[in-house]
Simulated assay, not measured.
Amino acid sequence: MSSDSTFGNWDFETVGTPEDFLASWSSTRGNLRRFLEDHAIPPIDEKTQRLAGEAAATQAVASIYGLELDDFHAGVDSVTGAIEAAGAFHVSSPDPDVPQDIGAAAFFDVDNTLIQGSSLIVFAQGLFRKKFFKVREILPVAWKQLKFKVTGSENAEDVAQGRLQALEFIKGRSVAELVELCEEIVDNHMAEKLWPGTKQLADMHIAAGHQVWLVSATPVQLAQILAKRLGFTGAIGTVAEAKDGIFTGRLVGDILHGPGKRHAVAALASIEKLDLARCTAYSDSINDLPMLSMVGTAVAVNPDKKLRAEAIKRGWAVRDFRSLRKAARAYGLPALATAAFSVTGWRIKKSLQK
């Protein structure tokens, strides 16, 4: 054994240093791989390669989000449509003085979660004022809203039919006209319907440097204007197809209700690099269980009976801001104010006596 040129069975004069050998071995492995790909197992054709790619993507999407690839594509369509509708993805910029917690976000439903009642009736009233339809055409929408008011819970079929009816109302109208109308609706008719408690929750997320998104079945233009007015990051909503600035009467992607919200949130998380385990979702409806179940923290806000039961079963937080409104309706604000001052005075007196 030569003390200069060999070490064990390693011949430095033949193959060089260990680094040279590793480089040579890596090159050989690369050549072997190319040989196998080109001769032993070459690609059959473009179609089979596309199928292989889809299979790989399906496996990845299923493992990360628990979705089928078609569902994920539908979510991407919805998110893409939202971007196109807004002209930009983020409708508000974060406060430069607030450190951003990258990867964390909060997703808020709109109807009965952020605002009192259904945004559909507010939207329909706005369309009626601008003569988008006649009285007889709004009666089915009004009936669905009445059911919503009486039962306090959403019906998936009613929501879907209502959104499709709204699409018929705007067919042939310009996008600019609808955006102007949505600005008027938000500024004059929706701001007063906000649940202050829910707004405070959203503001807490903003103060923590989280992204805050509205995820709603309401028309995306309406949702995005509401998000912009409130200083939220953005909004995803039902997207109506438009060609050359005119609505066609067709949808892009899903009506964002139930599973559609889950698809859109998965696509949004992928685009924004969000860690869903560090995200929070808020909703009032059992129909949003798919979205609530995919995040690390779920909160039931003003929940319907089924969601309340599910939240209790799963140990989710419940925030009900309706109790004060009901009390005010039953006893009147003056009586409530008097009671509040009385309780406060009693607590101060007790604390001073200690």
Rank of each mutant, 00 (worst) to 15 (best):
301 V>G: 09
35 F>K: 00
213 W>N: 02
333 L>T: 09
135 V>T: 02
152 G>A: 11
248 T>S: 07
293 S>C: 12
175 V>C: 11
158 D>W: 02
168 E>V: 07
272 E>K: 00
122 V>D: 13
329 R>D: 08
92 S>P: 04
45 D>W: 11
72 F>D: 00
249 G>P: 07
181 L>T: 00
286 I>P: 00
330 A>K: 10
243 K>I: 09
354 K>W: 13
165 Q>E: 10
324 L>G: 11
136 R>G: 02
320 D>R: 11
242 A>L: 08
128 F>G: 10
183 E>T: 05
349 K>F: 15
194 L>I: 12
16 G>F: 06
86 A>H: 00
219 P>Y: 09
195 W>H: 12
59 Q>R: 05
226 L>S: 08
312 I>Y: 10
157 E>W: 02
24 S>L: 15
284 D>C: 04
284 D>N: 15
337 A>R: 13
116 Q>I: 13
296 G>S: 10
353 Q>T: 09
15 V>Y: 11
242 A>P: 06
302 N>W: 06
191 A>V: 14
142 A>P: 05
127 L>P: 07
178 L>E: 02
258 G>C: 06
173 R>C: 03
99 P>D: 08
321 F>L: 06
91 V>M: 07
335 A>T: 08
209 G>N: 09
105 A>F: 03
120 L>N: 08
354 K>L: 08
333 L>E: 13
203 D>G: 05
8 G>P: 04
117 G>D: 04
11 D>C: 15
177 E>T: 14
141 V>R: 00
24 S>V: 13
201 L>N: 00
180 E>R: 01
192 E>W: 11
121 I>C: 05
16 G>R: 07
321 F>T: 01
233 T>Y: 06
328 A>N: 05
253 G>M: 04
306 K>R: 14
317 A>F: 12
174 S>L: 06
100 Q>S: 12
99 P>F: 14
269 A>L: 06
198 T>F: 09
43 P>L: 11
3 S>Y: 04
256 L>A: 03
272 E>S: 03
6 T>W: 08
8 G>E: 03
31 N>K: 11
92 S>W: 06
240 A>V: 09
69 L>P: 00
107 F>Q: 00
295 V>W: 03
240 A>T: 00
124 A>Y: 02
279 C>W: 05
332 G>D: 04
269 A>H: 05
316 W>P: 10
184 E>V: 07
97 D>W: 08
19 E>S: 15
27 S>L: 04
262 R>W: 02
289 L>N: 04
42 P>Q: 15
25 W>E: 02
140 P>E: 10
299 V>M: 06
251 L>M: 06
285 S>H: 01
151 T>V: 05
262 R>S: 05
171 K>V: 08
185 I>Q: 02
311 A>Q: 00
154 E>L: 05
266 A>L: 07
259 P>I: 08
215 V>D: 10
55 A>E: 14
84 E>C: 03
346 W>G: 01
234 G>V: 01
27 S>F: 06
250 R>G: 12
196 P>E: 10
339 A>T: 06
124 A>K: 01
228 K>W: 07
102 I>M: 14
321 F>P: 02
329 R>A: 12
314 R>E: 07
128 F>K: 01
3 S>P: 03
192 E>Y: 05
236 I>K: 00
20 D>L: 09
31 N>I: 07
92 S>N: 13
298 A>T: 03
90 H>W: 10
152 G>L: 08
9 N>P: 09
125 Q>C: 14
151 T>P: 05
